[in-house]
């Protein structure tokens, strides 16, 4: 049995809204310890992963291992129909296995229940490597304010929706996008006196080409947290991470473009 309490605008809802146009199904694994959501876009160019420990999820109840595929559009449409003041609970029970129920209860105790079919998640199941493996693959990381990151992603995506580059050295971080009528180039210098807001940490310089559209899609999710951390690699997808609550986190991966 699983019960997920949701609120309009919470991280779970935010992630679902963000990936609405990229993917049809969110793969959710729930245990007594918490929830893990993974979604990959239909072209397999981007992945989003949400980890929500049970202690950060007020009212979370799960007494067994549950792996389900949630139809994103159905869920988002239902949440959009609800009122901001509604208490929303996503339920997967033993008696109605194969379906999810989304219950909305108003402050006056009026209720609306949506029931929809789960999607077979086995077809699209994939595995992300663990944190230690990931860390070993990245030559550089940059911590920066999420609002600033979102502004840049928007700017890059507006300019060129196909070709963007992030470069990092131990002195600066640069973003570049190529548009049809011009280019945009953004540079951040590492300030020695203040590394709490902006901090570069590189083993060697990295330059990574990617499609800015995907980064822009995810960037709004990261404003749920004050700061984002970018992980750059010469051989692996760009990874962007932010913390949610005490121990939760969101990670997004964007596949690189490389020389043939």
């Amino acid at each position: 049995m699983l019960e997920l309490p949701l609120v309009k605008g919470d991280p779970f809802h935010h992630v679902m809204e963000a990936i609405l146009d990229l993917s049809d199904v969110a793969h959710v694994v729930c245990t007594t310890r918490g929830l893990n959501l993974l979604a990959v876009d239909t072209k397999h160019l981007a992945i989003v992963s949400l980890l929500f420990p049970a202690e950060d999820f007020k009212g979370y109840t799960c007494d067994e291992y549950i792996s389900i595929g949630i139809p994103i559009r159905d869920l988002v449409n239902a949440i959009r129909c609800g009122d901001d003041k509604d208490t929303i609970t996503l339920k997967v029970g033993e008696e109605n296995f194969g379906t999810i129920t989304l219950s909305f209860v108003s402050p006056e105790k009026n209720t609306v229940d949506y029931e929809f079919r789960l999607v077979d998640a086995k077809l699209e199941r994939f595995r992300l490597p663990d944190r230690h493996f990931l860390r070993s693959k990245y030559q550089g990381s940059v911590k920066m304010p999420s609002v600033e990151f979102r502004r840049i992603c928007k700017c890059l995506s507006n300019f060129g929706d196909e070709y963007g580059v992030i470069s990092v050295t131990d002195e600066d971080l640069t973003y570049f996008a190529k548009g049809t009528d011009g280019d945009v180039y953004v540079e951040y210098k590492q300030q020695e006196e203040d590394t709490t807001i902006f901090k570069i940490d590189v083993r060697e310089p990295v330059r990574l080409a990617f499609n800015p559209k995907y980064l822009n899609t995810f960037a709004k999710v990261f404003t749920l947290s004050g700061q984002v951390k970018l992980f750059l690699s010469k051989t692996h997808p760009l990874m962007v991470e932010c913390k949610i609550g005490q121990k939760g986190r969101i990670r997004c991966f964007v596949a690189p473009k490389v020389e043939p």
Binding site: V40, H44, K122, F126, R127, Y163, A255, K257, P260
Partner: peptide, 14 residues
């Protein structure tokens, strides 16, 4: 011209 890699190049899909 750059080649766009897909996630299969990095992570295992069943």
């Amino acid at each position: 011209v750059l080649t766009q890699l897909r996630m299969e190049a990095f992570y295992s899909f069943n």
